[in-house]
């Protein structure tokens, strides 16, 4: 993620819901948008979003409300190493 956030591991954005936060992120970092959202604008399924350490699936999904100081973690699956014999 850091790669698409101009080297930052954390950013602060005003947003009142998770959906609003993702839209704001995509607007500020256009290259991230392609990775984050599919062609219909939905969050790609290999991303997971946690609000204060809890998966949004356990909350209200993308409509989960956000408050100042909430910490949102956006996590994509990682494959790992894979050398030259792999699928790169």
């Amino acid at each position: 993620m850091r790669y698409y956030l101009e080297g930052q591991s954390e950013v602060e954005l005003p947003a009142s819901s998770v959906a609003e936060l993702l839209s704001a992120l995509a607007a500020r970092y256009p290259s991230l948008s392609f990775h984050l959202l599919d062609s219909d604008g939905n969050l790609r399924r290999h991303f997971n979003v946690f609000v204060n350490g809890v998966h949004i699936r356990e909350l209200n999904g993308l409509t989960t409300p956000l408050h100042p100081q909430d910490k949102v973690i956006l996590m994509a699956s990682a494959s790992g190493g894979k050398g030259e014999a792999g699928y790169v």
Binding site: Y3, H35, R44, R45, H46, N48, A76, S77, A78, S79, G80, G81, K82, G83, E84, G86, Y87, V88
Partner: peptide
């Protein structure tokens, strides 16, 4: 956690990154 894998080539590997 990950019901589906990422689309092919969407996640860089250590061999690339």
């Amino acid at each position: 956690l990950f019901p589906e894998p990422p689309p092919p080539n969407m996640v860089p590997t250590c061999a690339e990154g």
